[in-house]
Nucleic acid binder design. Structure first.
Lengths: 255, 255
DNA sequence: CGCCTGGTTGAGAATCATCAACATCTGTGG
DNA sequence: CCACAGATGTTGATGATTCTCAACCAGGCG
């Protein structure tokens, strides 16, 4: 069942429309409860909606924005998934995050008016562009929007700090287990299966993100499979033993 | 030469007043050019000033806020230095940052209305408390303040991400060298010596922050001293070879 | 003076990276 | 639909960096 488009902005069916349908507005978006509109009333959502630009879905590998490019907008992932990464002075890539529907990317560009990272689609994805100057204006008039955006940025900070802890203190097993749990939780938030999902990123990306080599990631996944904690079929992951996975993430010694 | 206080809020001499004098207002604060008031005009600074609460200097080891405590304010470091850290579920400490005069702490508390970390003074320090609800209100009326605060939070995000890269990709030598360069640069920003400074934090804190053990930090500092790149006298650090230090930070092989 | 915290140095152990070979998947074109 | 090539993933053997454990040193404070 695909969404039927009546005119440029209005659609008649959205409930089970294609995930990549890009002309849906915020108020009919399935993600409104976990995305930017959270904590806004209907009228405010409409105002927010009016500044958001939606474009056709982008293909796997396409960039949403590039490091050092002039900052203009933040973006909400509507469908698909995105990887954010930066290239260091030494020329090596550092994956700074994976983003799923309902999550906001590009906030690292505000500080210097240029993006500190690049973002590219890991699969075909729909993205909502939110021009930041207009978001700023709107925030002047809608206190709850300003507050919510402060909260979003603060959340990014706390998540980065949790990741710091993960990299600084935890073993390879813990890091991989934690990432699996994180993806699982974010899936659940979107009312998808917490136990089964498909990883949109490569092993290389996972390793890069977690400060590990591809080989180590592969070995950890094999090990967790052998322990019947995960079932790993290429990119298809099934969490077979949730408690066990949490135990590994928390540093239980499973020699 | 100490600052003379005429009344509760007005002071007559500030230029070389004691660094811990706490009744100074923003417009006469030596740090105004690098702190929150940046990009505000005089009238706006006065408004900002009126919501800021200053208290007497806090002693080494005292907390400014505690993890999980209800979030009310962000804080600007006026003098001294601060360490931010969080305690993980497993009960281990993770140092998430060191903060120097002119820098803002506590922004990780906005997301959940409770602090994600604790902050304690590494030495006697003066702190400006900025009640966040009032800062929010003021930001509604002063667009440049809102914008600046967005920028501050964005900066925190990019800095955390740089730290991620440091932890994820760099050797012990690179991490320690980078921290020394960071502290040096922040000293220079306050028009203090870039080449010589006193570390306010312990080796343990440095190691914790950089994801290394105390022993490794100690060994790296000894090594850099042997290479005549640093001069290390307990907490007194002198950068003897700035280019050399940058080379180490960038990963030059100095066997 | 002696204790305690913090820092340094050494020896051995462990985790993870590196190097290398091989397996599997994907997508493209015959 | 199959065959092939390149990319991606897995597994093994070896080695390096850093951690761990331990001893020792230095400084501050009662």
């Amino acid at each position: 069942m695909t969404a039927k488009v009546d005119s440029a902005n209005v659609i008649s069916i959205t409930e089970n429309g294609c995930a990549h349908e890009f002309r849906i507005n915020c108020s009919s978006c399935r993600l409104s409860s976990i995305c930017l509109p959270i904590a806004l009333n209907m009228e405010e959502v409409d105002q927010l909606d009016s500044i958001i630009q939606r474009s056709r879905p982008i293909q796997k590998g396409e960039h949403i924005y590039r490091q050092k490019e002039h900052f203009t907008s933040v973006y909400a992932v509507r469908s698909g998934s995105v990887k954010a990464y930066s290239i260091t002075d030494g020329g090596q890539e550092q994956v700074t995050g994976f983003y799923f529907p309902g999550e906001i990317i590009g906030m690292d560009g505000i500080a210097k008016s240029s993006y500190a990272s690049s973002a590219r689609a890991l699969e075909t994805s729909s993205i909502c562009e939110i021009p930041f100057d207009k978001l700023g204006e709107l925030s002047q008039r809608i206190p709850s929007l300003q507050r919510h955006f402060f909260q979003l940025m603060s959340q990014e900070i706390t998540e980065d700090q949790q990741l710091l802890t993960l990299l600084s203190k935890n073993t390879a097993d813990q890091r991989v287990a934690s990432l699996m749990l994180s993806i699982s939780a974010r899936n659940a938030r979107r009312r998808l299966s917490a136990a089964h999902f498909r990883l949109p990123m490569s092993r290389t990306d996972i390793g890069n993100y977690l400060g590990l080599t591809v080989e180590t990631v592969s070995r950890v996944l094999s090990r967790l499979q052998k322990l019947h904690i995960l079932s790993v079929d290429n990119k298809e992951i099934t969490i077979a033993d949730d408690a066990g996975l949490r135990a590994v993430a928390d540093g239980a010694h499973t020699h």
